[in-house]
Amino acid sequence: MSLQSLLLPATGAGSAAGKTKAQRNRRLLELGGAAAIVATYLFLVLTQPADIASGPASFAALVALGGFLLGAVLLIAAALPTLPTPTLVLMPVALVLNVVLGQLMGATGLPFYVDAIGTVLIAVLAGPAAGAATGALSTIVWSFFNPTVLPFAAGAALIGFLAGLAARGGLFRRFYLAPVAGFVTGILAGVVSAPIAAFVFGGTAGLGTGAVVSAFRAMGDTLLAAITKQALISDPMDKAIVFAIAALLVYALPRRTTFQFAFVRTFRVLAGMSPATPESQPQTQPESQPESQPETQPEA
């Protein structure tokens, strides 16, 4: 018996039933989380015109807070149990990088709030689930110092998730595709986060963004529409920069470090980073054959 206790149970048929059940539960949580966010968003977009004119959106604020936070919590609950310890240990690192690299970039004087570099980096190394959990959790931790970021947890989770999807889809294999993926992520994340800014805070946190929103309001837009348009101007650019910096950093890391991550190996996330194994196989569809060692294909 003592030998068996030193080993993990084999991944055989015995545990398959339990595994699929756990998987289904996780899928339900994921769907629940996504549904909560989408439903909240739709509800707010559809009902907001009646609300804004009749004073501050106390009701909408509660709905936005409740719906988005519930969604974020469900997504964290779905993702966390699947994450192995090495990924988990990286999550606080991602948060620290979000903050520290954000500050470093702030010192350059560029008018962008690049606060998601760590999240995107982890998503590229460890996948969409890790990215989503990192985004949401790091928002929760950061809210200890700035509580106003807390309602944006769902948006941060979305950024991490999309960055992971982009990495899995091979968008980080070519350097010029990373900012494109960031641009698209920025559009989605900006649109999803706009109701928070509009209904919970009644505006944006910065003077520069505030000025842009003012311009749209002057043209007669509703608050939500104005903030959404402002987000569409600044967020895609911001996320394109974030994705580009994350790509720059990930390629500056040595191969031994990036190859520790099964996600990087399995989905051939990075270009020219395949192991120089002698038995190099012809290029295969990575999803179908996770064990295959992709052939070396240096970037043109």
Partner: peptide, 26 residues
């Protein structure tokens, strides 16, 4: 091997997987 318990590895996917928590207890 730890004491009388020996684990063999052949470098393929059927190899036993060590439970790090239990292993490091010994």
């Amino acid at each position: 091997a730890l004491g009388a318990d020996r684990v063999e590895f052949h470098g393929n996917s059927n190899d036993p997987r060590i439970n790090p928590a239990a292993w490091s207890g010994r």
